[in-house]
Design a binder for these strands. Structure first.
Lengths: 138, 138
DNA sequence: ATTGCTGCAAACTCTTTGCAAGTTC
DNA sequence: GAACTTGCAAAGAGTTTGCAGCAAT
């Protein structure tokens, strides 16, 4: 539950923070701040832009969410779930998660054996660029 | 040579464009626009900020360079060389190229066999986040 | 001569900041 | 009541745009 999530990270429980978490749970497509604000304002019309940005920053700091960025556009945010990669279409600017444990295993083993000089790996993330071939636009 | 590169892409050869290309050749660390401008102004003090941005956009369009973006900061640019991945340190914000043909081969084979439903892959790129363990700060 | 490019400055977008007033624990 | 959080509005950074004049072909 969201209240416990906040408590766990030593954050005070406020309607604004709950609203941002709620938005993150409901907006699945790596929303940008603007979408999050728009979503929240439906039920909570007076929330300030600055508050949402501050809240998102706080959550990023506490690793409740992560930032995502493509080569083209503004900041987006990603609720933390399992370790996943991104499928990205340049044309539509759509981003989808891609989870593949088999791939993670291969990559982990590969780098454990090989290593990289002067670099200690903490996270391996793929960005697969290309085109979505389904018709349902998200 | 830079002049031929421009000609090949149907772009007029101008001192400003040559200067941007020269900067890209000399600045190896995925420079941001600001650094590029600063570099160029050493020899070419009157170049306009807007011109550099326009030139970079033109080059991105013609695929002479690419955009790179981390989760934190501004746009950076990357001279096109061979297919490479990125090592990225969150602390220092440093980015290095990582070239690994063996890895590319493994990834290509993996995805040729496996495929992704509703997605046609055009490019596979890794971002390896972690820490640089050498002392020479770039 | 034609087309394309540059410089300039103003405008724009997204994000951050400062602070007084209000909430949460 | 102490510490933190919010709303607001203004400022900031980075980037884009419009256009008159200039340069390249």
């Amino acid at each position: 539950m969201n209240r416990e999530l906040l408590k766990k990270h030593g954050l005070k429980i406020t309607p604004q923070r709950l609203a941002v978490l709620d938005a993150m749970n409901n907006l699945h497509d790596h929303p940008m701040a603007e979408c999050i604000i728009e979503f929240i304002r439906k039920n909570h019309p007076n929330i300030a832009t600055g508050t949402v940005y501050k809240t998102l920053d706080t959550f990023v700091e506490k690793v409740i969410i992560k930032r995502v960025k493509t080569d083209r556009d503004v900041m987006r945010y990603d609720a933390i779930t399992s370790h996943h990669h991104h499928l990205y279409c340049m044309e539509s600017d759509r981003i989808e998660d891609y989870v593949d444990e088999e791939l993670n295993k291969i990559l982990n083993e590969y780098f454990i054996n090989k290593g990289i000089p002067n670099f200690q790996i903490e996270e391996i993330k793929l960005q697969l660029s290309g085109k979505f071939t389904d018709t349902t636009q998200k």
